[in-house]
C-alpha cells in the first residue's frame, strides 16, 4: 500500500470538521493532494507534528485533531507520546505511516524494523493503539481508521506502508498562507482574547 492510498482511505472516514496536522516532506504533500483542503501542512519542524497536534487538541477540545506522521518523524518526537499519555486528550488521534524509511530524503532506512509499535506505545501509557500492515484487507484498514478517528480517547494507529512514492508537486502555499487558510476554515481569529476552557 502506498502512502497516498492509506491517506485516501482516511478521507473516506472524515466528517469534515477535523483539524489535520501533516508532517514535513512527502506526507504533507500527500495530505495536500489527497485530503480536503485546507489542513495544517508542516514543512519543517521534524519531530514536532505530535506536539503541534497536542497544542491544537488542548485549544479546541471539541474538535477532532488528527496527526499524520511518518516513522522517522514519529521516532524523533517520541517523547510527545508520553506527554500525550500524561494529558490523555480524548480528541487527539495519531496516525503513523510507517515505510521504515526517510522517504523524502532518498529512502534511507529508519530504525523502525526494530520496533514493536503497539507494545512500545502501550508501555508509554496509550492503550488504544492498533497496528496493520499492507497485506491486510482494505476494509480492515477502513474499520481501524474509523475506530481511531470516530471513537473517543487518545488513539494511535500504526500503518505499515510501502516505500514507493508517487511524484507530487510541492504545496503552492507559503506557510503563512497555510496558517491563514487553516484559521479561516475553522473560524479561528488570531487576535482572539478568548480563554480556553481548561
Amino acid at each position: 500500500m502506498k502512502c497516498s492510498e492509506a491517506v485516501s482511505q482516511l478521507r473516506d472516514v472524515l466528517r469534515g470538521d477535523e483539524m489535520i496536522v501533516s508532517s514535513n516532506g512527502h506526507i504533507s504533500r500527500v495530505a495536500y493532494h489527497f485530503l480536503p483542503r485546507p489542513q495544517l501542512y508542516l514543512r519543517g519542524s521534524m519531530g514536532l507534528p505530535m506536539a503541534v497536534g497536542l497544542g491544537l487538541a488542548l485549544a479546541h477540545q471539541h474538535k477532532t485533531i488528527i496527526v499524520l506522521t511518518g516513522d522517522g518523524n514519529f521516532l524523533m518526537g517520541l517523547g510527545s507520546v508520553t506527554t500525550i499519555s500524561y494529558l490523555s486528550p480524548p480528541n487527539l488521534k495519531i496516525i503513523i505511516l510507517d515505510n521504515e524509511a526517510y522517504a523524502t530524503t532518498g529512502g534511507q532506512e529508519t530504525v523502525s524494523t526494530a520496533i514493536d509499535y503497539p507494545s512500545m506505545i502501550q508501555g508509554m501509557g496509550i492503550t488504544a493503539v492498533k497496528s496493520t500492515d499492507p497485506h491486510e484487507a482494505k476494509d480492515k484498514l477502513n474499520k481501524l481508521l474509523e475506530q481511531t478517528i470516530c471513537e473517543p480517547g487518545p488513539k494511535i494507529l500504526h500503518i505499515k506502508i510501502g516505500k514507493e512514492m508517487i511524484p507530487l508537486d510541492y504545496i503552492p502555499w507559503h506557510p503563512v498562507r497555510i496558517c491563514l487558510n487553516f484559521k479561516k476554515q475553522h473560524n479561528i481569529n488570531s487576535k482572539t482574547e478568548e480563554k480556553n476552557d481548561v
Binding site: V21, L40, S45, G47, L48, P49, M50, A51, V52, G53, L54, G55, L56, A57, L58, A59, H60, G77, G79, S80, T83, C179, F182, K183, I188, N189, S190, T192, E194, K195, N196
Partner: peptide, 16 residues
C-alpha cells in the same frame, strides 16, 4: 524544549 515550542505553537495556531 522543542516539544514545548511545538505544543505552544499548536495552541497559538488554535487562536489561543
Amino acid at each position: 524544549e522543542d516539544e514545548a515550542v511545538g505544543i505552544a505553537c499548536g495552541f497559538s495556531l488554535g487562536g489561543k
